[in-house]
Structures are given as structure tokens and as C-alpha cells.
């Protein structure tokens, strides 16, 4: 299945245009206000690959913030599963790593059909990231800036051409029938790819070791006062969870339209909310903000590795961008790691 090819950059738009005839093409686009967002592509030439990370992550195409599940009336149910075929182009390695985690979460034991329906109809072309943002720290986690496996297609920008690595059947399907666009890579192409990866790795400003943080949490008791101190700056916006490409929590809501008629949807939820674990009789198991933050970080740094063998964080830095109080993964992990738990 694994196959490596070379494509002239000039052929990219032709290739994408052909693929677009069979599926919806989604890619990072630069808006008038200079923001980068993933959206449906109208003009292929407007796709931006040399850009900062998108906000939000491409998770919204697999688990949308609000997803209608089914409509119901007294004697019928109409399941609203999304089966749109999508190609998501220009995704970063960290986001692909996050999708790999989501696949495991939604596919383990109980299979989430809504997620799987979208997932099976979506194919990703990721790109070896050569312009990490100041907020990025995937390099310490092995989730970027490039991937060795678990991708559909991975592109490396070699100046005038792309090294195209195919890693899955869906990826191979995209290449089939376009052999005239591709040639076989030479040894120098691999050398060039190595240079790109080296140059990318040297550009990271943040060096965060979640493993060190994990060890510190396991071996040194972190006082709850630390979490309460972090909590003073938490706005309870839920932004860290909403923006996180790994977080999967949702709430299920039924809405009645008329007598007996209605619909069910799910909507992103967050463990940072007090009501997330509320029980009957007005009992909040995690009433203090600090205990919820602690739970979230324990989940990502301890329980995820126990269960999936990987951290529940891919180092994309989006919580750093979106947290209004600057109490994000990078900040908290760094503070625990270097032992800066002073009250300021």
C-alpha cells in the first residue's frame, strides 16, 4: 500500500480539480481578515499551505459542533447520518494524529455510527509542516511535524515538486488513474525531504515534554492549591475543549417541535463546565474549577497514555491561542515540569 511518488507543483490544481468532481474539497483558506480557516474550496488557487494553524481544527468535519442525529414523530424515525464524500486537503500532521486518536475512541467497543459514517467518507491529504507556529509543540510528542504512518496521503514541499507518500487504501484511490501526473522519486528527493524535516524541526520555539510532566504528576504530589491557583485565571469558556482536536465530549439534546414530533442532536460539551457532571439533587462532583482543570489534565496526561498508549494532546497549540486566561496545556505542563508552582 505504501507508495512514494513525485508530483510537479504545477499539476496540483489539476489533480485537485479532478478529484473535486467526485467529492467535496475542503482546504485551508485565507480570509479577508487574514484568518486561516478550513472551508469548502471555491477557487483552488486560493488554497493556503504556507500558513499558521487553522482555528478550529478539522475535527469539526468528523464531529461537528452541532450534529443532527435523527428526527422522530409518533411512529417513525428518520436517521440523519452524514455520508458526504469529503477530501480535506492541507491538514497538519498533528491534526491527523488527533484524528487517529478519535478513530480509536469512537471505534473502540461501542462504535459511534455518526462519527464512522463521516470518517469512512473522508480522506485526508496532510502536509509536512515546515512553518510551525510559536504555539506549536508537536515535536516533543512525535505527532508532527511529519508522520511515518497513519496518513492517507502526505505531501512534502520540495520547492518545485511534492514528495507524495501514500499510506492507506483511500489515499491510493486518489492517485489511481492519475499516473501521468506522477513520477518515481530519486534518491535526491529523499535527501531533500530530510532537509525539509530538519529545517522544520529547528524552527520550534516551544519545547514541552509531556512525559516529564506525567512523571512529575505521578511521582510528586501536586498540591490542589496549584490547580486552584491555575483556576483563578480560567474563564470557564470551554474554549480549550472546543478548540482541542482530541477532545470528543458531547451532550445529547432532544427538541420537540410539535406534539410527538421533534429531533435529536448532539453538541460539543466540555469537562470544564460544572454542570457536565451534575447529579440529581444539586450535587456537583467537581464543583471547584480547580478540580475540573485537574481532571482534564489528568485525563490527557495520565489516563490517555494508560488506555491508548499516547497522550491526549498532539501539541497543536490551539488551546494556547484560544484560552483567554493563558492557562493552556503548554503553560500548565511547563509549570509542572520545571516546578514553577509559585503563587503570583
Amino acid at each position: 500500500m505504501k507508495k512514494n511518488l513525485i508530483m510537479d507543483k504545477n499539476y496540483l490544481s489539476y489533480w485537485l480539480r479532478q478529484i473535486r468532481k467526485t467529492m467535496s474539497l475542503i482546504a485551508p483558506m485565507r480570509l479577508k481578515n487574514a484568518d486561516i480557516v478550513f472551508k469548502q474550496v471555491d477557487n483552488i488557487h486560493e488554497i493556503e499551505l504556507d500558513c499558521p494553524a487553522s482555528l478550529p481544527s478539522p475535527k469539526e468535519f468528523l464531529l461537528p459542533q452541532k450534529e443532527y442525529m435523527f428526527r422522530f414523530s409518533k411512529n417513525s424515525v428518520d436517521v440523519l447520518k452524514d455520508c458526504t464524500k469529503r477530501l480535506i486537503f492541507g491538514v497538519r500532521s498533528c491534526d491527523i494524529s488527533a484524528i487517529d486518536l478519535m478513530d480509536r475512541f469512537f471505534g473502540e467497543k461501542f462504535v459511534d455510527e455518526y462519527y464512522m459514517s463521516r470518517r469512512e467518507n473522508t480522506v485526508f491529504i496532510s502536509i509536512v509542516c515546515n512553518n510551525p507556529d510559536p504555539t506549536c509543540f508537536c515535536i516533543g510528542l512525535g505527532t508532527g511535524p511529519f508522520l511515518k504512518s497513519n496518513f492517507d496521503i502526505q505531501l512534502t514541499d520540495l520547492g518545485d515538486r511534492y514528495l507524495v507518500e501514500t499510506g492507506s487504501k483511500q489515499g491510493a484511490d486518489l492517485i489511481r488513474g492519475y499516473s501521468h501526473l506522477f513520477s518515481r522519486p530519486k534518491k535526491s528527493d529523499y535527501d531533500d525531504q530530510y532537509e525539509v524535516i530538519l529545517s522544520s524541526q529547528s524552527k520550534f520555539e516551544k519545547r514541552i515534554s509531556l512525559e516529564n510532566t506525567r512523571q512529575k504528576i505521578l511521582n510528586e504530589k501536586i498540591n490542589d492549591l496549584f490547580w486552584d491557583w491555575i483556576a483563578r485565571r480560567c474563564f470557564e469558556c470551554g474554549g480549550c475543549v472546543y478548540a482541542c482536536p482530541v477532545c470528543t465530549c458531547f451532550n445529547v439534546v432532544d427538541r420537540m417541535e410539535q406534539e410527538g414530533d421533534g429531533y435529536r442532536f448532539r453538541i460539543w460539551d466540555a469537562c470544564m463546565f460544572k454542570g457536565f457532571t451534575r447529579m440529581a439533587g444539586n450535587v456537583w462532583p467537581a464543583e471547584k474549577k480547580g478540580s475540573r482543570i485537574k481532571q482534564r489534565y489528568f485525563h490527557k496526561l495520565l489516563y490517555y497514555p494508560d488506555h491508548f498508549g499516547r497522550f491526549g494532546c498532539v501539541g497543536c497549540g490551539r488551546c494556547t491561542i484560544t484560552c483567554p486566561g493563558h492557562v493552556d496545556m503548554a503553560t500548565i505542563a511547563h509549570r509542572i515540569d520545571v516546578g514553577d508552582r509559585r503563587r503570583r
Binding site: D35, L55, E60, E236, F273, T322
Partner: peptide, 15 residues
């Protein structure tokens, strides 16, 4: 989702 290049919220939003 928040607008990142906005003078007020700079990529953040409240609940």
C-alpha cells in the same frame, strides 16, 4: 469559531 485576527477577542470567545 472565533476570529483570530480580531482586535477585541484575538482568537478567544466566552462560553
Amino acid at each position: 469559531s472565533p476570529v483570530r485576527n480580531h482586535l477585541v477577542n484575538k482568537g478567544s470567545l466566552c462560553v
